[in-house]
Design a protein around this nucleic acid. Structure first.
Lengths: 142, 142
DNA sequence: TTGCGTGCAAAGGTTTTGCATGGCA
DNA sequence: TGCCATGCAAAACCTTTGCACGCAA
C-alpha cells in the first residue's frame, strides 16, 4: 500500500469524485465510464482501469470480485484507519458493505494466530454473504 | 443443487478422476485442460466448462472466485456433509493460499448469522494476512 | 432411436498493453 | 523540461454459445 504520488488531472478528479459520492455502494468500470461520459468528461476505459489500480494500491478504494458477476466491483473506503479495527461484510445481493465491530469476531484473530500461525489483516479481509434484508426480503436476485 | 443425471463418458470420467486425485488443492480450467491433453485425452475447453458447471450444480465440486485472481478455481468436495465448508487464508507477502479446515472457525458463521443476521458464503470469503513463514522469517518480502 | 456430450470455432465481455500525444509540476 | 496521464486501438484472457456429429442408454 503505497502513497498516491500521481498528478492531479481533471479526469482523475472526476473519477474520484464519483467514487466518493457513491461510497455507500459498489460500482464498476462500466458504470463509471457511462457516468463520466454523461457528465461530458468521458474517460477511456484503459485510463479508468489504470487509475482504479492506483487507488486500490493506495488503499483508498477496495476491489471486489464476486462470483456469478462479470467484472470487478470497486468501492471507495472513507476512513482507512478506522477500518483496520473491524471486519467487513459484503452482501452479494445488494452490494452493501457492512462495517462490523464485534469483539467476538476479533477473537478469531487470536485463534488463528495461535493455532494456525497466521496473522489476519482485518482491513483487507471481507466476508462475503447475504445480508439480513436480502435474505429476509426475498430470494429474488438483483 | 440437483442430481447428476448425465451420461458417463470417458472424457467426463477422466475429468472427474483428475479432480478427485487433486481434491486437496484448487485447480482451474487451464490446468485441467493441460493435464488432460498431456494424458492423451484432450477435452475441449467448452466441454470442461460445461462439465464443471454441472459438477458445481450437483455439489460435487466447489467453485471459488478469489479476489485479485483471474479465472475461477475449482475443487472436488469429497464428503459434502463433513468437509462441506472451509475458509481460505491468503498470505499478502508470499501469495500462498491456505485451505483452513477448522471447526472453531465455522462457529463464526453461526455467530454472525445469529447476532448480525448475515449469512456468510465461505466459498467466496478469503482472510488476508501474513502466514507463519513470512511473519517469522522477516519483514522483507515482495 | 433419442437426446445428451463433445469438438471446433466464433462470439461476448472484461482487462491489459503499446504507442503517440497531451498536461501537470 | 521531465515525467506521468490519457486516448485509441489492438491484444490477451476467460467464458459462453451455436451447430454438427458422436456416443450412451
Amino acid at each position: 500500500m503505497k502513497r498516491d504520488t500521481g498528478y492531479n488531472t481533471k479526469q482523475k478528479e472526476k473519477l474520484v469524485d464519483y467514487l466518493v459520492r457513491n461510497k455507500e455502494k459498489h460500482t464498476n468500470v462500466q458504470e463509471i465510464s457511462a457516468y463520466l461520459a454523461s457528465e461530458g468528461s468521458p474517460l477511456g476505459t484503459a485510463t479508468i482501469y489504470r487509475q482504479l489500480d492506483k487507488l486500490v494500491e493506495s488503499g483508498l478504494v477496495r476491489k471486489f470480485v464476486i462470483d456469478g458477476k462479470m467484472g470487478a466491483c470497486y468501492q471507495y473506503i472513507e476512513n482507512t484507519e478506522e477500518c483496520r479495527e473491524h471486519f467487513h461484510l459484503k452482501c452479494l445481493k445488494c452490494g452493501k458493505l457492512i462495517h462490523l465491530n464485534c469483539d467476538h469476531l476479533m477473537g478469531i484473530n487470536e485463534h488463528i494466530a495461535e493455532h494456525h500461525g497466521f496473522i489476519i489483516d482485518p482491513s483487507q479481509t471481507v466476508f462475503y454473504g447475504v445480508c439480513a434484508e436480502c435474505s429476509a426480503g426475498s430470494d429474488e436476485q438483483v
